[in-house]
Design a protein around this nucleic acid. Structure first.
Length: 683
DNA sequence: CAGGCTTTTGTTTTT
DNA sequence: CAAAAGCCTG
């Protein structure tokens, strides 16, 4: 009993006039300025369906890019729901980084990479920078983070190591530039790329190689980009290169929601677009379908304090809604407590499901206290962006093994795991291996098998080192002779008694079981990934599965599968693109919401946009909290209310806990804690 | 070489 | 006040 899918004509009827303009413009460059909650996702998804069903585009000739996996997945789900299986085959909706990876997997040889190259995450690249500083610059270790950051910025700006060297005009820049040169050399030697390379390398390839550029430009007939105010210089260049002479694309963005300038995003790209493409068509989406009038007005009033590239006037025909509550509490403890009590009481009194609440905050550490209080009230919650799946020790170690298995040149992985679990291979031994490796110009793993080591390394260490090398070799040979990867991995796990080691490392059996489950989950995901790659007819290899998995937030995926009714905890950054009926925005204080560093750097505008993003997540109610005192570094600090509170329309705010609240608010609060108390007794 | 202990360091935001 | 890094002993 399959319901007939709504026809594309019906879907188009659900759009407003502006949205329809945006969908129907298909023959040239288009920029859609989409205010918060103006239905831009509908525009993008409907447009993809329209391109395929009405305009006869093949799904595999359309590329859509977003910034987060969550957004990409959601979008793909919606589009696939509109199309038949036939029609949606080969449709590519992914993040920028996934797209770059896909290009690189096809063209890696031209970028000087070998089969099975690995993807370095932020931690890997930091330890690589440290290694370089240690070896080549006699240990200016304190500069590591700075160098890493500077190098990343250069890459995002398409600055080559040579250019960085030439332009370095301070001591710091010079050091960073020198490290940059070495860093790229080491990366290639390790047969590895970092996150930024996923964009940078495809861009350089497309620029340098005409044949390759031609091929990709022929392949990509239409391009759609979401959140394009967040594109950095290299991503913008990638768009231009892929769009090519055809110049057919839809970019969607909102300069008021640009909150990633700190990692190289260039909201000016929106402006530059009309220079680079003089016949650019501009469509503004200004009707907000998400929030109440009061919430929208507050957001508009706040953001009016920022300068604008394009003027926008968001309006809504929803009802006025409730005023915005501002809760002032004694300290951060009371703040979390009040939020938890409030949620529990509203859940019980109005039967609002937990999933309708979101708590937003500036920094991840703020979630700690919340977790404690929510647990105390037995409120189920889901934290987004906490410890990522891949930073869990048991996963990190196993990933190290997998990387080394796939890419024996990956010295970083080698160093991370040779002695985990303990094999009595310590720093002294490893140094000798390292020396030999650089002497002979081979990887550390390969050097570990060399006879020459027998002179400098003694008994036990030598033996376990050689055993290790031979063991890895055997496993790799099995993989190369076409064995299916997961059984090989299972063999490996068995050989080193990995599960036993995990249990040993873990205080309680229960926690150990949980960790083993995580490992199993990783194996499952690899298996699934291999199967789906097979279906898509890509040449499926373990290396591809691994780097794809690294780009996906698995934690998210894991929990998405359960149909959960949980309060959502997220950072303001992570909340972009999402919406919730009831939003709590906590920690609205000077030095925290305009963050201290941003105040110092005079970077208030981006902080204001961050607050704007937070406010515009709310559909029905918004509650902003702040504490009078807060613990910091052990001592109690007096907090000032955020300047952004002064920029909200006063007539729509209701203050609580400031000493001048009305009787009704006090009564409400009493009731809130009473209900919460009952809830605790019941459970 | 490993594990436990003391000292020191430090808090944006993330693909 | 916490986590991480460094120090020292078995």
């Amino acid at each position: 009993m399959s319901e007939p899918l709504p026809s594309i004509a019906q879907r188009l009827r659900n759009l407003n006039e502006r949205q329809l303009d945006a969908v129907k413009k298909i023959d040239g460059p288009l920029l859609v300025l989409a205010g918060a909650g103006s239905g831009k996702t509908s525009v993008i998804t409907t447009k993809i369906a329209y391109l395929i069903q009405t305009c006869g585009f093949k799904a595999n000739s359309i590329i859509a890019v977003t910034f987060t996996n969550k957004a990409a997945r959601e979008m793909k789900e919606r589009v696939v729901g509109m199309l038949s299986k036939q029609e949606s085959r080969g449709l590519s909706i992914s993040t920028f980084h996934n797209l770059g990876l896909r290009i690189l997997r096809k063209e890696f040889r031209r970028a000087g990479l070998k089969e099975g190259f690995t993807l370095f995450d932020a931690q890997d690249s930091l330890s690589l920078v440290k290694e370089i500083l240690d070896k080549e610059f006699n240990g200016q270790m304190d500069a590591a983070a700075y160098c890493q950051n500077t190098i990343s910025n250069w890459k995002n700006d398409l600055t080559t190591p040579q250019e960085a060297m030439t332009n370095a005009d301070t001591e710091e820049f010079l050091l960073a530039a020198q490290v940059y040169v070495q860093y790229q050399r080491y990366l290639r030697a390790y047969n590895a790329v970092d996150f930024d390379d996923l964009i940078l390398l495809p861009v350089s390839l497309l620029m340098a190689d005409e044949e390759l550029r031609d091929r990709w430009q022929k392949k990509v007939r239409y391009l759609l980009v979401d959140e394009c105010q967040d594109t950095n210089a290299s991503q913008y260049e990638l768009i231009r290169l892929l769009a090519g002479f055809r110049r057919c694309f839809t970019l969607v963005g909102d300069d008021d929601q640009s909150i990633y300038a700190w990692r190289g995003a260039r909201p000016e790209n929106l402006e530059r677009l009309s220079v680079d493409y003089p016949n650019l068509k501009l469509v503004k989406l200004e009707q907000n379908y998400r929030s109440t009038k009061i919430i929208l007005k507050a957001a508009n009033t706040l953001i009016a304090n920022n300068p604008h590239i394009y003027d926008k006037a968001l309006w809504s025909d929803h009802e006025e809604g409730e005023p915005i509550r501002i809760m002032v509490t004694r300290n951060e403890d009371a703040e979390s407590e009040r939020v938890a009590a409030e949620i529990q009481s509203r859940h019980l009194r109005h039967e609002i499901p937990y999933r309708d609440f979101a708590i937003l905050y500036r920094g991840n550490h703020q979630a700690r206290l919340l977790e404690i209080k929510l647990q105390a009230y037995r409120i189920p919650y889901k934290m987004n962006g906490g410890t990522s799946f891949f930073s869990r020790a048991e996963i990190k170690v196993l990933m190290g093994y997998l990387r080394l298995l796939v890419n024996p040149s990956d010295d970083n992985a080698f160093l991370r795991i040779v002695n985990v679990p303990r094999r009595e291979i310590g720093p002294a031994t490893l140094e000798k291996v390292g020396n030999l490796a650089s002497e002979r110009g081979v990887s550390r793993l390969e050097a570990a098998g060399y006879k020459a080591l027998e002179e400098s390394i003694t008994g036990r260490s030598l033996k376990s080192l050689q055993d290790f090398e031979r063991w890895m070799l055997t496993l790799r040979q099995r993989l190369e002779s076409g064995a299916s990867p997961v059984p090989v991995i299972e063999q490996m796990i068995h050989d080193m008694d990995y599960y036993g080691w995990i249990q040993e490392q873990t205080s309680s059996n229960k926690a150990g079981d949980r960790r083993i489950e995580n490992v199993r989950f990783l194996l499952d995901s690899i298996q699934r990934m291999m199967e789906s790659a097979w279906e898509e007819d890509e040449n499926a290899g373990l290396d591809q599965a691994i780097s794809k998995l690294l780009l996906i937030d698995m934690l998210e995926r894991q929990e998405e599968e359960e149909d959960e009714d949980k309060v959502q905890l997220l950072t303001l950054h992570a909340s972009k693109g999402l919406e919730y009926p009831h939003v709590f925005l906590i920690g609205c204080e000077e030095e925290l919401l305009p963050h201290r560093n941003s105040i110092e750097n005079d970077d208030i505008e981006e902080e204001r946009r961050l607050a704007y993003v937070g406010i515009t997540r709310a559909k029905k109610t918004l509650c902003i909290t702040l504490a009078a005192k807060r613990r910091q570094y052990g001592e109690e600090i007096d907090c000032m209310p955020s300047r952004f509170l002064d920029e909200l329309p006063e007539e729509d705010l209701v203050w609580e806990g400031r000493g001048d609240e009305g009787e009704s608010a006090k009564k409400e609060r009493g009731q809130a804690s009473l209900s919460a108390l009952k809830a605790m007794l019941n459970s």
